[in-house]
Simulated scan of single mutants.
Amino acid sequence: MAAKLVRKCLVLLVLVLLLVVPAFSFPLKRRKPLNVIKEINHKGPYLGLVTVYPPEENAFFATGIFKPHRTLDLSGRRFLVGKIHEKKVIYVRCGVGMVNAAVATQQMLDLFDIKGIVHFGIAGNLNDSLSIGDVSIPKQIAHTGIWEWLNPKGKLNPNYVAHLDVASYNVPKGKGRNLLGRIGYSKEEFFSELGKPNAARPLVWAQISQHWLHLAHNLKV
Rank of each mutant, 00 (worst) to 15 (best):
I84L: 03
V103P: 11
I132A: 15
A206F: 11
L34W: 11
A162R: 04
F120A: 08
C9R: 04
L12A: 11
I146D: 12
D113C: 03
I183Q: 05
V118C: 02
S136D: 04
V89S: 00
H214C: 14
F120L: 10
M1A: 13
E193H: 11
L109Q: 11
A62S: 13
K67R: 05
A199G: 00
A104E: 09
L180M: 11
V16Q: 03
L12Q: 09
V21E: 01
V166Y: 13
L10T: 12
H214V: 12
N157F: 08
P138D: 00
L219P: 08
Y169R: 05
V16G: 04
K8Q: 12
L17E: 01
W205V: 09
E148R: 14
E86W: 06
V21H: 02
I117S: 01
A59T: 09
Q207H: 00
I141T: 05
P45M: 05
A2T: 15
M1S: 14
S192P: 02
R177L: 13
L130T: 08
L18V: 15
N198Q: 10
E39T: 06
L17A: 12
A104N: 02
G121F: 00
V50D: 00
L18G: 15
Y53S: 07
V11H: 06
L28R: 13
K196S: 04
L213V: 08
G174E: 02
L130R: 08
K88I: 06
K155W: 12
P45Y: 06
L19T: 07
W205M: 07
G133F: 03
V103D: 13
Y160C: 10
V16T: 15
I37T: 06
H163R: 04
G97Y: 10
D73K: 14
V92C: 08
A62K: 13
F79S: 05
K29Y: 10
R201W: 08
L28Y: 04
Q140Y: 10
S209N: 08
H85A: 10
I146V: 14
Q107C: 07
V135G: 00
F112Q: 00
K43D: 15
E188Q: 13
S136Y: 11
G174M: 03
V14W: 04
V161K: 14
F60S: 02
W147L: 04
K32N: 13
S75D: 12
L215C: 15
P54Y: 07
K87I: 10
G116T: 01
A167F: 00
N178I: 01
I37S: 02
D113A: 00
N58T: 07
N41K: 02
A206H: 08
A101C: 08
R7I: 12
L215Q: 15
P55V: 04
H214R: 15
V96T: 03
C9T: 03
V118D: 06
R30W: 15
R31V: 13
V166I: 14
L5H: 09
N35Q: 13
P68H: 07
L203T: 00
V89T: 03
K155A: 05
S209L: 05
N218K: 06
T144L: 15
P22N: 11
T144I: 14
W205E: 09
A23G: 04
P202C: 02
K173N: 08
N151C: 07
H211G: 13
L17N: 07
G145F: 03
C9V: 02
